[in-house]
Amino acid sequence: MDKLDLAKAYKTYYTARTKPQIVEFEPISYVTIAGKGDPNGTTFANATEALYTVAYGVKGKCKKAEQDFTVPKLEGQWWVDGDPRTALEVPREQWHWKLLIRMPVFVTAELVEEARRGALVKKKELKVIADVGYETLHEGLCVQMLHVGPYATEPETLAQMEHFILKEQLSYRGLHHEIYLSDPRKIDPDKLKTILRYPVQAIEVVKG
């Protein structure tokens, strides 16, 4: 039985250049969980564990149905109250986030719900599993760039993206989106690779 590797099947989604580029995506489904607070805190850690628990539960059910897949990289959307691009300018305790793990097209909301219920039974102490859901996002046209280095230096990459967005006469249309290609527990911070992505749209030019 072949195992689906989403990173190989959707290379445009899981790869990016070290300079800004324009990409476009169709609607994509995920298991998700949302929260607020410092990403180094317990709430974030528990949410991540809950999300992976459900994702692997889905994988297990798919494997039994001979539709096995590799659970892909963790992703996150980030924002603060007000302008979503100012997250790095406020205390981390005020950050809102939504963690995501992409699902294959054959995974349904019903299957995710089954996996979520099963996970709640197996890990009764991890009550936040109840907050994991299934969601489809359509980001459409986006600007993305590969950030290499620690998360703290992301503003340098985001500045390049903003310059590119303005130069191309585009405007922001959605939340800051990150895909974590590296595991920070296993790699030097200077070598971390993260895809940074923003949904965008063309600026309407009013002609006189």
Rank of each mutant, 00 (worst) to 15 (best):
I129K: 00
T15E: 11
L120I: 11
E75M: 12
V54K: 03
Q94G: 00
I129R: 01
T70E: 15
A16F: 08
E114W: 05
A55T: 06
R17V: 03
D83G: 04
A50D: 05
R117A: 06
Y56Q: 06
V121W: 09
T108C: 03
K122A: 12
G35K: 06
D83C: 04
W95C: 00
K61A: 09
K73H: 15
L88R: 03
V23N: 10
G60C: 10
T15L: 10
R117G: 00
W97L: 14
Y52V: 03
R116I: 02
A87E: 04
I33K: 01
K123A: 02
Y10F: 15
I101Q: 01
R85I: 03
I129G: 02
Q21N: 07
I101N: 01
I28R: 14
P91N: 01
K64M: 13
E110M: 07
I33W: 04
D38Q: 06
D83I: 05
V23C: 13
V128R: 01
G60L: 14
T43W: 07
R17A: 15
Q67H: 13
T15R: 12
K11L: 13
E26L: 15
G76A: 15
V105N: 11
H96Q: 09
E75W: 08
G76C: 08
I129S: 02
W78V: 08
P20F: 10
E93Y: 10
L126N: 02
F69I: 01
A45G: 12
I28F: 13
R102C: 12
A87Y: 10
I28L: 14
A47M: 12
K122N: 11
N40L: 09
C62D: 01
G57C: 03
R116C: 04
Q21V: 04
K36D: 00
Q21M: 08
M103S: 05
E114A: 06
V105L: 15
V121P: 00
F106W: 15
V121R: 13
V128Q: 01
I33Q: 04
G35P: 08
E125L: 01
R102T: 03
V31G: 00
C62Q: 07
N46S: 02
A16E: 02
V71N: 02
T42A: 15
A45W: 08
K61S: 09
L74A: 04
V112C: 06
I22G: 07
P72L: 12
Y52E: 02
R17T: 12
A34S: 13
P72H: 07
P104G: 07
E125Q: 10
Q77I: 07
R17Q: 12
V58W: 03
